[in-house]
Computed example of a mutant assay.
Amino acid sequence: MNKKCLAMMVLGASAFVSTAAMAADIPFPHLETTGRGEIVVKPDMAVFSVSVVETKKNAVDAKLAVDQAVTKFIERLQAAGVNKKDINSANIALSAQYNYPKDHKPELVGFRANRNVEVTVHQLTKLNSYLDDALGDGINQINNIELKVADTEKYQQQARQKAIENAKQVAASLAQGFGNKIDGVWQIDYNTDGLPMPYMRTNTYMVGSAPQSAIDQSYTDNNIVIKDSVNVIFKLAEK
């Protein structure tokens, strides 16, 4: 990675404007760096969202149809070992459907019910079987699949330590290049922007379209990048 992207140095005056302290004049030789670090990890869990949409002549029948599909799906998930707390299915939307003939008043043709189910999967190898169960239980839409990592804080700390080491290495290199050396830290400005970016799957597989092992691997082969950064003002040795 280009060092220009990793660090910024200003001698004599602060270049950071994120805080009033860093924008203030500093009455001694110093330099400023931005250290960056990142960790690449394999996902080990996922959250997926599915929904069932039904249109019926009346609102009661529409609601009943989606409730039945969701109930069957939840029962199958729990039978497969999914904890109830990892299933969120409370929301439902009902809307009247109209036909709009030309030069006539709108005509009520039925009611559409839409109910979503969000499932947290802690065993990624079971993800595809849960999706297959959803399609077999009357769920007619897979909205998204979000791949995640369970122990986020551990990897966040690793990325943070890499950012700190990067800031120190860049500062030492810059100081040496100008015939000087680092003489301690004056100020640290830390605002994390490194929360892991979940990997969103937008494609799904039809049941039986590929071997189960190949489908499972298509999820676990993806990576999640966790980043962190730190701004540091270092003091330079007095000459």
Rank of each mutant, 00 (worst) to 15 (best):
C5Y: 12
L6C: 03
L11C: 00
A13Q: 15
A13L: 08
S14T: 13
S18H: 10
A20N: 11
A21G: 08
M22Y: 13
A24R: 12
A24P: 00
D25Q: 09
I26N: 03
G35E: 05
G37S: 07
I39F: 02
P43F: 09
M45F: 01
A46H: 02
V47G: 02
S49N: 13
V50G: 00
S51M: 06
T55Q: 05
T55E: 14
K56S: 10
K56W: 05
L64Q: 11
D67A: 13
Q68S: 06
F73V: 09
R76Y: 11
G81S: 11
V82N: 03
N83P: 00
N83K: 15
K84I: 13
D86G: 05
S89Y: 09
S89W: 06
S89V: 09
A90H: 12
N91E: 14
I92Q: 09
A93W: 08
A93M: 14
S95T: 15
S95K: 14
A96V: 13
Q97E: 15
N99R: 11
P101G: 09
K102L: 15
D103C: 02
P106E: 14
E107W: 02
V109S: 06
V109A: 00
G110Q: 07
R112V: 09
R112E: 13
N114R: 07
V117Y: 04
E118C: 08
V121A: 06
H122A: 11
T125G: 03
L127T: 08
S129L: 12
S129T: 15
D133P: 01
A134R: 07
L135G: 13
L135M: 15
G136K: 15
G138H: 14
G138A: 12
N144V: 10
I145H: 03
E146S: 15
L147P: 01
L147F: 05
K148C: 09
A150G: 07
K154H: 15
Y155I: 08
Q156D: 05
A159P: 02
R160M: 07
E165K: 07
N166D: 14
K168L: 04
V170P: 01
V170W: 01
V170F: 02
L174W: 13
A175F: 10
G179D: 01
N180W: 07
K181L: 09
D183V: 04
D183G: 01
G184P: 05
W186L: 13
N191V: 08
T192G: 03
G194I: 05
P196Q: 12
M197A: 12
M197D: 10
M200S: 09
M200E: 08
R201T: 11
M206A: 15
Q212M: 11
S213K: 06
S213T: 13
Q217C: 06
Y219A: 07
N222D: 10
N222R: 12
N222Y: 04
I226E: 02
D228K: 02
D228N: 05
N231R: 05
V232Y: 04
I233K: 04
